[in-house]
Design a protein around this nucleic acid. Structure first.
Lengths: 375, 375
DNA sequence: CGCGATTACTGTAGCGGTACAGAAGATGCT
DNA sequence: AGCATCTTCTGTACCGCTACAGTAATCGCG
């Protein structure tokens, strides 16, 4: 006698007090009702293929037997589709969840994907104990690669599997759809803004998974990821033209210890009158450090961020930054992925598209002309 | 002649310039090498089952044929395990990514799960266009249910599927492992702290997916989720004992518009001298609103949060709050889930464990005795 | 009334693996 | 030499579902 789990409120097995069976499958239900297995499958997955009366009987029998519905794994094999897409993030997932820009991006993807019924599976580039490599071993219909090192083994697995892919904030590759933003021109505009204000001593605080860290001689020596490199190019576009040679400091990504890096720039004999930062989060740290050092922002030192993180508008002084529409990026990525999956499914034509979203310089209160004494 | 994709650097098919085949499977490789399919399977999944020489030949042939490795979907069916676990979040995934407490929790889970090789699949309670219900249709080995409404259809699907589950910040259910924090006693301590400081006029600003919203007459009328309810109980434990009847305002969860709700409490003829908030994020909004109204915190009004969000320490005044160890909660949840999956796999004994993590009142600068004039 | 079009259901042939129980030959030991 | 024991490799039987091509009965219609 099954009376149901008192707390979940659900019956232990089935909803009709049916017998306790090892495991109900389509066949179990088919046998019970006296129809073919295919008909039961249709009852669940293609209701228009049978009479509603029979469907009713089948569904009832299924409930009675505790049959929940087609097994997702078996269905995935038979259909060749899993209903989930992967999103590959840098090694430390922690970053992905700590950074407001990354989380907004993920949120936008999740929202765009929700109506399609596709679930999002988080993938890391790490390898598990038993040699499990999610990128190789998890079933999925396609994947997004977000801001990862260019050529990790994990990405190679995704490519080898011939999964429909979309690269986001990655160096675009032929045959793979990509979504990027105008990092370079955005950075150029930011640097030009400083030049126009009259700054001649400029510092750059960038970030990257690869070193070297600290004050770097050659800003382009690192095999940095796409965004850091593009932004560095953009900053230099404007600075070079103005004949300015910036001091460049690099730090690990998403470090909370911006202070140390910022001091490398600011706590010197001849500190820059303006600092270009890889992100708003870093810019925030620079502003705080400047204040700690007794420098006023923007009177003594101007600071420019990147991203237009919500933080940028909230902080005091409000941050001059380069806006990118992260939500739009997420939507574009999700759309590109569903499109790539669709194309893969139908074997349709069409080449991989490379989307490039605009950036825009947002002037706020953290930039001003350099102090008179150094002008 | 395959020369490889110039940009991905990977060959179009196989690594040995092998022929372009429709799709390589174990059988394809087996035929090529002249061994049984089972041996090829072993070469990939159980290397100790064959001589390394043969394995080498098999792997080479596989690479040549463009065979990547066992198909995850097929393997999932045959093995009965997918290598992914779900985590069910409230309808709007956006919240999950917007709230720093939620993201820290997710990050901790992800980190704890990484070494096991289990990927995290994000599930929503929403139903996709084609009637796709992730909780029912996505293959997974188990799932976490985090802070969802008690009995949504999506949760029912998970239960019906008999998936190993762990409830987090949910009302514990028999037979289902759960992880919770001492919401009630934490809230009680917070309220008691205000009582001890001499406050008699106390406001409460809580949040919940279910209304009613605004100033509520009966704080317990809402069928609120577990945490809101427990905290409400805790606050009342202390206030009731002191004979204090608080004004209670409820707002939707994670709304950015705390201002409106806060004004319902503060912008009145007889504003409370202290406000208890459901979260630090809300407390932040209350502090800002108080300042906008010309009230000083804590001189005119004390504010207490909940969670000990990093924000709490950063804000000025630093927020008095109730600390919960979100990372520990994430780790505990992940551990409970892997344990549940393991038990399910081995059919082992052992009852579902219910973990309850401590909370702790953290005194900072946002609370003080009420202003003299109202004392 | 006869015939093509629908509707309702069935059978077969996979999808691409893994588990498990051998079998055949090599090895070790007395 | 004789026999138990490894080591390697093989064969079979699923895992649970869906695609697709039927078949049989019902329907519409001139």
């Amino acid at each position: 006698m099954q009376s149901g789990n008192p707390l979940t409120g659900l019956p232990f097995f089935g909803t009709g007090g049916g017998e306790v069976v090892a495991k109900a499958t389509l066949q179990t239900v088919a046998d019970r009702v006296g129809v073919s297995r295919m008909t039961v499958s249709n009852a669940f997955s293609r209701p228009d293929q049978l009479s509603s009366a029979l469907r009713r009987r089948i569904l009832d029998a299924a409930a009675d037997l505790g049959y929940v519905g087609p097994d997702p794994a078996a269905r995935a094999l038979a259909r060749g589709a899993t209903g989930a897409v992967g999103v590959m993030l840098t090694d430390s997932l922690r970053f992905a969840f700590t950074d407001e820009v990354a989380t907004s991006f993920l949120a936008a993807i999740a929202e765009e994907l929700a109506p399609t019924g596709l679930a999002l599976t988080l993938l890391t580039t790490t390898t598990g104990q038993a040699g499990v490599v999610p990128a190789r071993d998890v079933a999925m219909d396609g994947a997004l690669v977000y801001s990862c090192e260019a050529r990790s083994p994990a990405i190679d697995w995704l490519i080898r599997r011939r999964l429909p892919l979309v690269f986001v904030d990655q160096t675009p590759a032929a045959g793979i759809a990509s979504v990027n933003v105008e990092d370079r021109s955005g950075a150029r505009a930011a640097a030009q803004h400083l030049v126009d204000l009259g700054h001649r001593r400029v510092g750059i605080l960038t970030a990257g998974a690869d070193g070297p860290y600290g004050l770097v001689a050659d800003p382009f020596a690192s095999r940095a990821a796409y965004a850091p490199r593009q932004r560095m190019l953009g900053w230099h576009d404007a600075l070079d033209r103005a004949g300015i040679r910036p001091n460049v400091v690099r730090q690990p990504p998403y470090s909370d210890r911006v202070g140390e890096s910022a001091r490398l720039l600011l706590d010197t004999a001849e500190p820059p009158t303006a600092v270009l930062c890889f992100s708003d989060a870093i810019a925030y740290g620079v502003v705080r450090t400047a204040e700690d050092l007794g420098l006023r922002v923007p009177a003594d030192v101007s600071v420019v961020g990147f991203d237009d993180n919500p933080l940028a508008g909230r902080m005091r002084p409000a941050l001059t930054t380069v806006r990118q529409d992260v939500a739009a990026k997420g939507r574009a990525a999700a759309a590109a992925l569903t499109m790539a999956i669709e194309r893969d499914r139908t074997g349709a034509p069409g080449r991989a598209r490379h989307v490039r979203l605009p950036t825009e310089l947002v002037l706020r209160d953290s930039t001003a002309s350099p102090p008179a004494r150094v002008r």
